[in-house]
Design a protein around this nucleic acid. Sequence first.
DNA 1: CAGCATCCGTGGCGATACTG
DNA 2: CAGTATCGCCACGGATGCTG
Lengths: 134, 134
Amino acid sequence: MEVSTPGRADGPLLADVDGAGCPSRLVLEHVTSRWGVLVLIALLERSYRFSELRRRIGGVSEKMLTQTLQTLERDGFVHRDAKPVIPPRVDYSLTGMGEEAARRIRELALWTEARVPAVEEARARYDGANGRKR
Amino acid sequence: MEVSTPGRADGPLLADVDGAGCPSRLVLEHVTSRWGVLVLIALLERSYRFSELRRRIGGVSEKMLTQTLQTLERDGFVHRDAKPVIPPRVDYSLTGMGEEAARRIRELALWTEARVPAVEEARARYDGANGRKR
DNA sequence: CAGCATCCGTGGCGATACTG
DNA sequence: CAGTATCGCCACGGATGCTG
């Protein structure tokens, strides 16, 4: 209720000014974090076990996946189901709230993917216009 | 064209596996970056001058704002209009593509902000269930 | 298998000073 | 005013090894 109403410019974006301590920014950062985005999209598809998820998302370290899942679980986006069996089996899935978020994220990701060619053209133009930096 | 089709699990998310070198992940990371998100939302509202934008978004350093704007400009999301006057005046605005992206981002941000109370409840439950860690 | 602990390098990012 | 350049810290994140 503090964010930009199209056409109106008021207080700082997403309230509270200082990066740390602003709750909405914090949550948004969790959701839009590098691996958070990919985890949410994957779980939108179906539930996954830890290692399965790790393979599904290429390039994520064990540590970062753990950390990402913990943050998302704590924030109430992901449900963690640890089955007391040997060997251990833990399934991750989206909560209702997580699914709502994930849908929006996926929408953005799909749109982005479709736009990659346009972005590459833009870069070529940019690099051409300037001194072929990069 | 490689991203999750709801219900189907195939290759790694957003193609190409390795974090670096995967174009769609790269672009998505620019757009969902900490300051990128806030810049896009702000510019959706109206165009801004550099310092104006810096004040509008609380807590961003000059360096990071410059860097974020350059990345977004290079990717074709932001238009930079440098007027040859003294003192210098540079206006930033969204391109057509930038506006499309920004709308989706804002949608996510608004949704997130509305969900902050729910997130805080989830955290309380989480911290309560476990050993009051944190 | 899941995931915590530890070590450790890289670079993200802030602070400061300087230029056109 | 709108940047660039430089320095330096710390934390993000990868690699490895251990536990239940």
